[in-house]
Design a protein around this nucleic acid. Structure first.
Lengths: 157, 157
DNA sequence: GAAAAATAGTTTAATATTAAATTATTCCAG
DNA sequence: CTGGAATAATTTAATATTAAACTATTTTTC
């Protein structure tokens, strides 16, 4: 048993859980990252493509809200996706403040190709847990007050 | 119930859990981040300071392994901490490839000041879960094969 | 002992992430 | 109708993160 932090049991426990949770998450994301990078994508780019794939065209603002990222970051990630020819931007006619982001045919093909592998990896990484344990884990994470509402459930990133 | 991804139940479940886990982790880290930044630190800088605080002086290599970050990244984070006068680097006499990173008195004082607040936040964020649930969450995260061994348990970052 | 291999740390390049400031557009109050 | 407020997107600056290439030092091989 380590001797690093000594404090009340509830503190030690909370820190313990925090570390395990963050480590688990980082490790899973790293595995997904390694997969998508074989298709020349970063996790963030994958996240945008995946959101567009499942939800259809979205304005940048909506992308940012869905992916929990700032506007400036969305601009950068979408810039790079646009450069790669995977998405196209279109300023809305009715309200020119909004820019709609669409998958290009190439983008559509790519995400359709990449996504199943991501699913496979996630299923594989979850395999050490039984279905009931997975459900339990999901519930506990959600109970932390951090869960997603239903319409965000299957958005991988 | 969302209609975004349709697939076999085990796939839907795994994705569901993945998202919740990653979201939970990101949210917790964001809260810790907001706290440490009131002391002028980033989460990564805090991670280094905290490791040095609890484990004593470490070479950069060891820091990287402990924090699961690359050498290049450690160099950058430690560069910035050194610039801020919170750590000092010292090339080892016995093997000049190694650089030992030490907390300066200022760094020591700062981490001693910051750390309790971080603990408080984490305890508070874990509060929606009972002690048993917290233990359970920790076990499930660890069961994903991603747990930390004992000597890493109380290293917050 | 000399050269090759291994290892620690740094540099480089590309991408990400945030907050804050800025620009452009639309909405709202008077 | 006009000016101010609100909102979407971009820019700027600072920091982070990785992989790959590079430099310096030590270890290993022959």
């Amino acid at each position: 048993m380590g001797t690093h932090y000594r404090g009340p049991p509830e503190e030690v426990r909370a820190l313990d859980v925090y570390i395990k949770l963050v480590r688990a998450a980082e490790s899973l994301v790293a595995k997904v990252s390694r997969h998508v990078e074989t298709f020349g994508l970063t996790v963030s780019q994958f996240g945008v493509l995946e959101a567009l794939h499942h939800l259809g065209a979205l304005c940048q603002n909506a992308l940012g809200r869905k992916l929990l990222r700032t506007g400036g970051n969305i601009t950068l990630v979408v810039d790079n996706l646009e450069k790669a020819g995977l998405v196209a931007r279109e300023r809305q006619k009715t309200d020119r403040r909004f820019i709609t982001v669409n998958l290009t045919p190439r983008g559509r093909d790519l995400i359709a190709e990449v996504f199943p592998g991501v699913v496979e990896i996630i299923v594989k990484e979850m395999a050490p847990l039984s279905p009931a344990e997975q459900e339990r884990l999901g519930l506990l994470c959600r109970k932390l007050g951090l869960g997603t509402n239903d319409k965000e459930v299957r958005n991988v990133s």
